[in-house]
Design a protein around this nucleic acid. Structure first.
Lengths: 221, 221, 221, 221
DNA sequence: TATGAATGAGACTTCATTCAT
DNA sequence: TATGAATGAAGTCTCATTCAT
């Protein structure tokens, strides 16, 4: 499945890239504030720094903007996720590191993750599969890392368990963003990482006192 | 915090309740199909079985409908959750049963959970807290059950861990709905419950072969 | 082929008829002045005496207005044509009378005929057939009258000739409207009727001095 | 009345002529397909083989294109009409020949005639007279030929009749194009010419059996 | 209490035209 | 002379909300 093409009237590829980057940047800000539906194309154009006419030289419909935004955010997250997970050698330690890196990425890109998360559903039936595919690719990265641990004998898991775990990790990352209204009141990022990692590895029954919880390490925002 | 009041022009309380129930029923169906923003008030009125004029006798704005819908869904989920968790006596077995019950409720109310989940963000700053409060109450139910286990000595967990666990359970339930496009392709509900429970209790490191996975038990839909 | 239905949101048939009549009346005036394409829906609404929102309660698209206008004009012309031709008894005299009546109708409805004439081409492929069918019905009326003359032995014509004659009469009527910029400078309506009738019956070769031409009878406008 | 000037930024007369010819050629095709209003200047430029910027080096407004197109079509029709009528010597035979030639020209240039016919009204008050003048010149050609016949004693007609006849011939030619949706279903060009000529000369009353009608001679398209 | 016609702000999108390169 | 990116006025249409009946 190739990248879904968004048609532009302008030919110059470099310019298209540049203008779309402006557009995406402006749109993300607006979508964060008011959501996709409550943001007008005029506002997007303005935030991007050009006229409404120019906006439509680079997209066909408003929904194209949403697609471009989602696509861009996914790419960024994935890229950063990839950096972190790429070099892992299939040890538990490296898995923990990978999770920690991912949670930090989500933390840094909270707003973007939130937007992507809340607005994908507004994508047309046409565009949705392209975006969901990217999501699955990210899940697959975790799957891969966990699988390596299994192959190395560090973990003993069935394939179904591996998949489930990968999904859980992925969602727990997103959760930090979409439940921030409560989670981030209770935990610092470090605590969140520590707790989730511990629970993931030890489970409930073995978790007690496995790690010393540090209530004071909460980072201020 | 009391229930947020939605103003109605009509005085007869019984009638208000009746009309709003019609309204919510119709609206949920529509929101499932097209989302809140793409559903018109006319459509809601029609689906509810009365005229647009009548609709506005029972609400003030379109957003009121969304609030009513979210509120109603939360109430239903919470009610059913309560039934399941209420009688639990603080044993691990009862906790497992509670989780299982909850996941089943989510499965049965998938559409509703999805709507609620995707559209809460469209609520005004005014209405949001009321809905989020309900969510926290549900999380608190799990918290309570886990706490009982701790008090009974069945589990050994810090308060922060308890809270985290409650959130995880809650989100993993929702996850079954909002990631159904992939999860429900891979697992039957029973498998999902089994796997998540196992991972929750044993964690990764101890999970292996804890339970025999049954690939063929997948229920057909 | 039934009348093409233009969808209205409003249910009350009587009201629909009334509003559409207002709409048509306003639109004709505007189309006469500036043509269909240069007339905006807002202008139509205003000319009709209601808001743009109300306009769209009675039509679906701007093109519907054009269809309604064309349809209405055709109906009027046809109705009046029918009155004149209906009672004719298949004599040459009655045919002449019918032609004269038709030309007078066209003269009185010049603006409308012109609009219809110039704008039909803007109708969608969907609506066009309905309008062209009406035109053919009008041609058929002349055909019928001429055929009666043939059957009565007053004229001796082949079927192909009858059809051709009917088309010629019809177009010569329209011509009085769409070439008014030159014809109406040269002839009064009476002269036009007299001349065309004479040429139709006598032809060129026998036409000379058949009728005394009356240069002074030109009507003033 | 001189030819209306369309301003160009480019000085080189030869180039202006060349570019405008390209432009007209492309525009006619487009106007045939979608009409003047639904054709964009971009499309015209593209069809002409150059950029939108270049287009505007050779015209001032979109309407200029329409003027150029109409002007060009009229010139072509007139030129070909002139060829046919020029050498006629004022006999009935030559008049018939002239009519036949003219109808054949219209047949060959159907699309163009149709465009010109349907779009002249979109010309501004400013440009219209220039085009109508050309039309009158063509009518005058027929007038001239008929007048010659009168002067030669071949026909006996008053001046008003001559003018009327000229207009009729002219319109009956156009009619072949603008009523082709029905006429060309019923008659071949040859039949059309034959019938119209016969009716023109003999009229209704004398037309019978004047010419043997040949139903089978219809040419296939 | 119920209805549904009326309203008009405002949304998305197009396209003729300009102008710097 | 040729290009095509940029512009923004203006067009069509939608829909939440009101109010007279």
């Amino acid at each position: 499945m190739k990248k879904r093409q968004v048609q532009a009237s302008v030919k110059d590829e470099r310019l298209v890239k540049k203008r779309r980057d402006q557009m995406i940047k402006g749109a993300v800000t607006l979508f964060i504030q008011k959501g996709f539906h409550r943001t007008t194309t005029r506002e997007i154009a303005k935030a991007a720094g050009f006229s409404i006419g120019t906006l439509y030289e680079y997209i066909r419909t408003k929904e194209d903007v949403l697609y471009l935004v989602c696509d861009s955010i996914y790419d960024q997250v994935r890229e950063r996720l990839y950096e972190g997970l790429d070099t892992k050698k299939g040890t538990i330690e490296s898995l923990k590191q990978g999770i920690s890196d991912y949670f930090k990425v989500v933390d840094e890109m909270q707003d973007e993750v939130l937007v992507m998360y809340q607005e994908v559903k507004s994508l047309s039936k046409d565009a949705l599969p392209y975006v969901l595919k990217k999501e699955l690719e990210m899940v697959a990265m975790f799957e891969h890392v966990v699988t390596l641990c299994v192959e190395n004998g560090e973990l003993d898991l069935a394939m179904e368990e591996v998949k489930m775990i990968a999904h859980n990790i992925f969602v727990q990352g997103q959760m930090w963003a979409f439940r921030r209204w409560t989670l981030q009141k209770m935990y610092s990022l470090e605590q969140y990482i520590q707790l989730q990692t511990e629970l993931l590895f030890q489970g409930i029954q073995g978790s007690a006192s496995a790690v010393e919880f540090q209530p004071d390490s909460r980072s201020q925002k």
